[in-house]
Amino acid sequence: MNPDDVAAYALGLPEVSEEEPWGPHRPVYKVGGKIFATLAAANTSQPDRLSVKCESTLALHLYDQYPAVRPGYGYQGPHWHWITVHLDGTVPDQELAEMITHSWQCVVDGLPRTARDRLRRLHRDQAQPPAQSWADGP
C-alpha cells in the first residue's frame, strides 16, 4: 500500500474523518474524535510511514515478523502500543489493512457504549457481502 491506498482504506471504515493538525502531509484518521492512524510523508532518511494502535502481544509478534514494523511514538502501555510501519513494500497489503482495521477497533472499543455498539454494527454490516436475492439466480 502507498499512502493514498492507506488513506482510502482508513476513510472507508465507518465514520472516519481525516485531519491535518500537525501540518500538511501529516494526516491523522479519527473515529469518535480519537486518533487511530497517522501518516507521515517520506523524507531523506525514511520512507512513508503509517502509525497505528495495536494490542501489546500482537505488536511484539509484528516486530518479529516484519523489520518494517517498529515501536511507534506515544503511549506504550500494558494493553496496547503505537506501532510504526515503514511503507517500503515489505509488509503485505492485506496485513496493512488488518493493522488499520485493528487500530480502528481498538479505538472503537474505548468509546462510550452507544457509539461503540453503533460503530461495530456498521462495520459488521459493511464487511458482510450483500445477500443475494432470488431474482439474481443461483
Rank of each mutant, 00 (worst) to 15 (best):
M1Y: 12
N2F: 13
D5Q: 00
D5L: 06
Y9V: 11
A10M: 02
G12E: 07
G12N: 02
L13K: 06
P14G: 02
V16C: 02
S17A: 08
E18N: 00
E19R: 09
P21A: 04
P21Y: 02
P21K: 03
P24Y: 14
R26F: 11
Y29C: 04
K34R: 15
K34Q: 14
A37L: 02
A40N: 10
A40K: 12
A41L: 13
A41E: 15
A41H: 13
A42F: 07
T44K: 15
T44G: 14
S45R: 15
Q46R: 07
P47S: 09
L50N: 09
V52F: 09
V52M: 00
K53G: 03
T57V: 08
T57G: 10
A59W: 05
A68C: 10
A68E: 11
V69K: 11
G72Q: 08
G72D: 10
Y73C: 00
Y75F: 15
Q76L: 13
G77Q: 05
G77W: 08
P78A: 11
W82P: 01
L87N: 05
L87K: 10
G89K: 15
T90D: 12
D93H: 14
Q94K: 01
E95M: 09
E95L: 11
L96P: 02
A97V: 02
E98K: 06
M99H: 00
M99G: 13
M99V: 00
I100S: 04
V108E: 08
D109K: 14
G110N: 14
A115R: 00
R116Y: 11
D117Q: 08
D117I: 07
D117T: 06
L119C: 03
L119R: 01
R120T: 05
H123P: 03
H123K: 12
Q126K: 13
A127C: 12
Q128G: 06
P129Q: 07
A131M: 13
